[in-house]
Amino acid sequence: MYISAQRLRHMQQVQDLLDQLQPTASAEVICVPGSQEPEGTVIVFTGSFNPPTIAHLALLKQAQQYAKDVQGPVHVYAAFSKRTVDKEGVERPLLLDKVILLQDILSKRLPAVGILLFNRGLYVEQAQAIRQAFPKVKRVLFLMGFDKIVQIFDPHYYEDRDASLEALFSMAELFVVPRGNAGEDDLARLLQQPENQRFACYVTSRPFAAAYRDISATQVRQGGSHYEHETPREVRYFIQRLRPYAPPVKRLDGSERDVYQEHVAYVKQHLGPVC
């Protein structure tokens, strides 16, 4: 469970940022050190990244290609939220570990992509946080799969859906990519529904390679040999070394060993409370 002093210092720095974000406070966002401060146009891909897959990386790389169609400076960010809609039940691994792992991957593979941390999970709250925290930002584009746009238009998530959508689209636009078998035609049908038509001009369909559309972080967490082909090397090492998604290992004497909980205990010993 040894972690170098330099690594622990970096983990402490990230944990201090996470501690600043309170889900019950007004909308807030923090730029992780090493990421360029947002300005001009920003493309933000918010996810749980639990764990990061090759589809996540492909979409972030594709976002850099989308940026060529936008005038002026464009910066691409992956983003985490301390309150992720419909993900509250997923507790392992620590948010700290997820941020550090993604940062390690991006630094080697997509160094121009930054990381943002939000305290709130709704896109309207995240758009508000960006606008308030980074006044040099002129345009906000959220990048998402088709499953997320369905969620955004679902009244289940709002007290007043139309008022919330009006607020969202006054601050941001959406880039939507195919997910599974759902593509451009499905998006067009969703936007043609009478209650959605007036928001259609703020939503743009973008291409995404079919090879990545069915890759799921949920399936990776559930195990199986396929995860070796759907995750980058850093994720495979993380899973094999710390076993964050695996049940405790049974010893010959009948006792159990939870490798990931041992890691968490080690981190808490050196950093104090973590999330």
Rank of each mutant, 00 (worst) to 15 (best):
A25Y: 07
I30A: 13
G89T: 12
L18A: 04
Q22G: 01
L18V: 08
P38M: 10
Y66A: 08
P52R: 05
E37Y: 12
P23E: 06
Q65F: 03
K87E: 06
G89Y: 06
G47A: 15
I54N: 09
H75W: 07
Q36A: 15
I54G: 01
V85R: 08
V29T: 14
S48L: 07
I30D: 00
A58V: 04
V29H: 05
A67L: 03
Q12D: 12
R92P: 00
G89L: 08
E37D: 10
T24D: 14
A63L: 04
Y77M: 08
G72M: 09
D16T: 15
P33T: 12
V76G: 04
P73E: 13
R92Y: 11
L101W: 02
G40D: 07
L21Q: 02
L60Y: 02
Q36S: 15
Q20V: 04
R92S: 09
P73D: 10
D19P: 00
T84A: 14
V14H: 05
L95G: 04
A27C: 06
T41Q: 06
Q65P: 00
V76N: 03
V14Y: 02
A27F: 02
V44W: 03
L101T: 08
A79L: 06
A25Q: 13
S26W: 05
L96D: 08
D19A: 13
V74M: 07
L21H: 02
Q12N: 11
T53P: 00
V14D: 03
P38V: 10
D69L: 12
Q71M: 11
L60G: 13
D97P: 00
H56S: 06
A58K: 10
Q65R: 13
T41I: 04
A58T: 02
V32I: 14
T84Q: 12
S48Q: 05
A27M: 00
K82M: 05
G89F: 07
L57I: 14
Q64E: 15
Q62V: 00
